[in-house]
């Protein structure tokens, strides 16, 4: 049996130009690195590195601007959609996106994300949901599952004391403003490929001035879930997927047309 090997000087896989040569500081097995790479690939493919703006938020991804090779800025906890709103309104040619975690977007920043969606701001939000507060050390997030352990729900999340998890895509897709709302995951290669398609469509929606686009990415946090990185992927499938079903929650007709275009291409 012969293996069909490529020539040695053929590059099959390379670092996207939109990524800096800067080491990720994430824990082993964290999903953020995957999502960052997907965003960078999409920005390369859409050739918008000179217009892209990363609006980082507070949490593990506070220094997102270090990893991307384009303009970026920090925003206060939860306020990234407001910051991105102003950047887009002031400089419509730029392509700002927010990168927000579940504590940032679904707890302290609920007002900002809801109203950016309600206004139909022409921005993109990548929402990493790992159902836990990472940077502060594993406290309950608004998306923490019922019964799930966190350092602030030591006996597991009880609804009588700590309420219920928020389903962000389901909630935001009830609004008229968003053009595209989808939930994806990065637990296996097939899921990663779908995640990239959704992220790309979200950016394309912005480039076509169609309004707010939001992609929720279910992402593992092995450190605070207290499982090994590989098992974290299984844990995600077993526990997060039933609570947070993958799929497209809102696709306005103009975005559906964009999808058809890309299938034809």
């Amino acid at each position: 049996m012969t293996l069909d090997t490529p020539e040695l000087d053929t590059v099959l896989y390379h670092k996207p130009e939109a990524l800096e040569d800067y080491p990720f500081h994430f824990c082993p097995g964290c999903g953020h690195g995957i999502v960052f790479r997907l965003i960078a690939e999409v920005i390369d493919e859409l050739k918008i590195k000179e217009r892209a703006v990363c609006v980082a938020s507070i949490g593990c991804t506070v220094t997102s601007y270090h990893y991307f090779n384009f303009d970026g800025l920090e925003s206060a906890h939860g306020r990234a959609p407001a910051v991105a709103t102003a950047i887009k309104r002031c400089r419509p040619n730029l392509v700002p996106f927010t990168y927000q975690g579940d504590g940032d977007l679904a707890a302290i920043g609920t007002a900002e994300i809801v109203h950016a969606c309600a206004r139909g701001e022409n921005i993109t939000t990548i929402f990493a949901n790992n159902a836990i507060y990472g940077m502060t050390g594993g406290q309950m997030a608004p998306t923490t599952l019922l019964g799930m352990y966190s350092t602030s729900t030591p006996g597991g999340r009880q609804p009588s004391r700590a309420g219920y998890p928020i389903r962000v895509c389901e909630m935001l897709s009830t609004l008229d403003g968003p053009a595209y709302v989808a939930r994806v995951s990065v637990h296996n290669p097939a899921a990663v490929r779908k995640a990239k398609q959704a992220i790309k469509l979200a950016f394309r929606a912005q480039l076509a001035n169609l309004g707010m686009s939001l992609v929720e990415v279910l992402s593992p946090c092995p450190t605070n879930w207290r499982v090994e990185p590989v098992k974290a992927m299984d844990w995600l499938v077993e526990h997060l997927l039933p609570q947070y079903p993958l799929g497209e929650y809102k696709v306005i007709p103009a975005v559906a047309d964009l999808k058809k275009e890309s299938r034809r291409a």
């Binding site: 407001a82 910051v83 102003a86 950047i87 309104r89 002031c90 730029l94 007002a111």
Partner: peptide
């Protein structure tokens, strides 16, 4: 640009964004 915001928190954050974008705001 004029935006009536959802709160003063959003207003100051938009101001931050506009100032960061190099605009008088």
């Amino acid at each position: 640009v004029f935006v009536q915001t959802e709160s003063e928190l959003a207003a100051i954050s938009m101001l931050y964004g506009a100032a960061a974008a190099g605009c008088r705001a």
